[in-house]
Structures are given as structure tokens and as C-alpha cells.
Amino acid sequence: MDTCLRQSPHHIVITKTRDRPDHTLTRCNVHCVRTDIFARLDREPEPPKIETPRMSRHRIALFGGTLAFYLAIVLAVLVSSWLVALDWKVMLFRPYQQWPELHAFLDYYVVLGQRGPTAVMVASWLGWRSWRQHTLRPLLTLGTSLLLLNLSVGAVKLGLGRLGPHYATQIGSAELFAGGDIFPSGHTANAVVTWGILAYLATTPRARRYLSALSAFVSLGVGLTTVYIGTHWLSDVLLGWAAGLLILLALPWFEPLITRTEAWILAVREQWRARRRLRESVPPAPVSPEPVLLPRTPGSGTGPEAAAREAMNSRSTASGAAARAGTAARARAHQGHPVRAERTPPAGTRRPPHAERPPRSSAGPARPVAGGPVAP
């Protein structure tokens, strides 16, 4: 008897061959049962049920605590407290001179906090997520967070006008309202928001934990790198961490706006598609041919050829009348002015008659044929 494996959703069922007395082999029957991975790839992808984060009590408590920390940092810098003195100690320590071997690597690492490169990288990943999940929510959430980041951080930067360590003018001073734009740190806040949005949009608790740890590590490293290079004070980095975290914690309040924006974009796209299908389904207007009348020759008033010619002329006249009727209708549609290409040419010839040239229709004397006698 043939032997085979027991069927299972995760196995391949193979029917073995056997030897017959005449030393011939039976056909090998191979039955492949698709595994879950290939079956999932062959199916049409469906958008998963994504749970939208809500503003829970725990999140509200974190938001309130982060906001209090944010205001405390701003107040400590405004009054030139111990935090400003710590800024100057770190600046005069010059970490980039203490560990110069790290400078080359950290110059590239700090790019993870620049808004342009990080936005392109994260937007590419979220664009694939949007296509895979059949929703615009990931891209719209990223755009909303970056807009909030530019408005909030930019307003505080320009309002306080703090100078950086390389442009400081007085030791121990907070260097506020001097035309600068480094407080809070934009690199640090951007790193928190751009990489933290991946954890915010995660669909499983495990992925959310891993991505939260990754974004915290990247944003922490970017902030300390700016202090090492000397482009920011330590207080700038602390305020940048708080500013980015506030935006991530406040995103659930903007989820209804994101949902309405997505619905509006999809509705506009459907209207555009409907208009495009309507334009493609309308057939072009037919063009009626102009009538062509066959000329009459002398002596062709009778006979079958004359009857056929008269019938063709009558059909051409009828089609010409129909074409003129259509032209008149289109002219009325154009407010009574016919189109230049649809005007009927005037009857007759435009060449003036010649006094000495006889008309072509009159019968003249017959010309003699070369090489033959003239007919009487």
C-alpha cells in the first residue's frame, strides 16, 4: 500500500510511490497544504482593528507632571538659579576636549535629531504602514505632531531668545532675550517626537514597549550629544525632553481632528475619481459628413446611370440637410453664433466669368484626333 504523511495545517502531504510486479512506478501525488504565512500573503490585506489611544487618567497625570517640570525649568533659567550655574560648569568643562575620540562619531549621531532627515525616514516607514493598513492615520498623526512641535518649540525659542554656549557674552548669565534661538533644544525635542511617534502608533503592547525604549535611548543620546559638542546648555536639553514628551502625551486630544481630516481627504478623492470616470464614459459627438453632389454632363439626363446619380444626389442632399439642422442646433447652443468650422460655403464658384472663355457646359466643336481624318 501507499504510505503518506498525516495531513496537518503546517505540513506538506506527500504520497509515496510503490513498485508494481511489472517494475513500473505509479504516479507520485504531492499535496501541498499552505502554511499560515503564505495563506496570509495570498489573501487581500485588510486593515486591522487599530485601537486609538485615549486621554486616560494615567496619561493626564503624566501630562500634568511633565508640564510642571517644563515650567520649573523655564522659571529656573529666568531667575538665573543653580541650573544656570550648572550650565556654565558643564560648558567650561568642555566635554569635546575631554574625550576627543568620540567627536567624529557623535557628529553623525546627532543627525538623528535633525528634523529633515528624521522626518523623511519616519515618514517612509509610516507611509508603508498607511498603505498596508489602508488608512491615512499614521501619516496624519506624524504631520500633526511635527506641526505642534514647530509651533510650541519655535514660539518659546523666539520668545526667550537665549544665546548658545559658543556665543555667550557674560559668565554666569542666563543669556536670555539676546536674539538667540536655542532654548529649548530643537534637536532633543524633535528626537523625542519623531522616534516616539513610532511607539505611539504601535499596534501591540510588546512593540510599544520596545519602541518606547528605543525612542528614549535615541532622544537621550541626541540631547547629551548636543551638550558634548557645545551647541546647547544642559537646561536646553532638559526643556527639549519635556517639550517633546508634552506633544506625545497631548496627541489623543487631536485624534478626532485627525479622523475628520482623513474622512475629508478620502471623500475628496472619491469625488475626483467619480468626475474622472464620468468624463471617460461620455462618448465624443459624431461629425456629420458634408454632402457631395455628382455633376451632370450633357446628354446624361436619361438612362440607368442618370437614375443612380439622382438617387445618390438625393441621399447626399438629405444628409446635408440633417447636418445643417445639427449645425443650427449647435449654433443656438452657442447663443446664435455658428462655429467658423461649421459654416456652409457659398454656392457657386468665386472666380469671375471670363468674357472670351466659353462655359464648360456648352458643347463646342469637336477636336480632331491626331493622325486621323476629321469627322464630318
Results as ranks from 00 to 15, higher is better:
80 S>D: 11
83 L>A: 10
100 P>W: 03
70 Y>R: 00
186 G>Q: 12
117 P>F: 04
102 L>W: 15
171 I>C: 04
59 R>Y: 02
106 L>W: 07
67 L>E: 01
137 R>K: 10
132 R>E: 11
110 V>T: 15
119 A>D: 04
109 Y>C: 00
51 E>G: 02
75 L>M: 06
93 F>N: 12
73 I>N: 03
86 L>F: 13
163 L>F: 02
63 F>E: 05
168 A>S: 15
139 L>Q: 08
179 G>M: 03
68 A>S: 08
59 R>D: 06
50 I>W: 12
134 H>W: 14
146 L>G: 00
129 R>W: 00
160 L>S: 05
48 P>H: 05
163 L>P: 11
86 L>D: 04
87 D>N: 15
178 A>G: 12
183 F>N: 02
139 L>V: 13
102 L>T: 07
187 H>A: 02
98 Q>G: 10
42 D>L: 09
156 V>M: 08
175 E>R: 03
143 G>P: 00
185 S>T: 09
97 Q>D: 14
112 L>S: 03
179 G>F: 00
165 P>Q: 10
137 R>F: 11
47 P>N: 14
153 V>M: 10
116 G>H: 03
48 P>Q: 06
43 R>D: 12
64 G>F: 09
78 L>A: 14
122 V>W: 02
86 L>K: 09
85 A>C: 01
188 T>S: 13
50 I>R: 11
158 L>C: 03
47 P>Q: 13
109 Y>H: 04
102 L>F: 15
134 H>Y: 13
110 V>A: 12
161 G>C: 09
101 E>W: 15
110 V>Y: 01
181 D>G: 08
131 W>V: 12
47 P>S: 15
120 V>D: 05
127 G>W: 14
164 G>F: 02
168 A>F: 08
141 T>C: 07
99 W>I: 11
124 S>A: 15
166 H>V: 07
77 V>I: 09
77 V>G: 01
99 W>V: 13
46 E>K: 12
161 G>T: 07
148 L>C: 07
63 F>Y: 08
60 I>W: 01
160 L>N: 06
48 P>L: 04
122 V>Q: 06
47 P>E: 11
148 L>M: 11
150 N>E: 12
48 P>K: 08
54 R>M: 02
91 M>S: 15
95 P>C: 01
156 V>T: 11
75 L>Q: 12
153 V>Q: 13
139 L>K: 05
123 A>C: 02
73 I>E: 03
95 P>F: 04
133 Q>A: 07
148 L>V: 02
131 W>C: 10
55 M>I: 01
71 L>W: 06
94 R>H: 14
176 L>G: 10
78 L>T: 09
182 I>S: 15
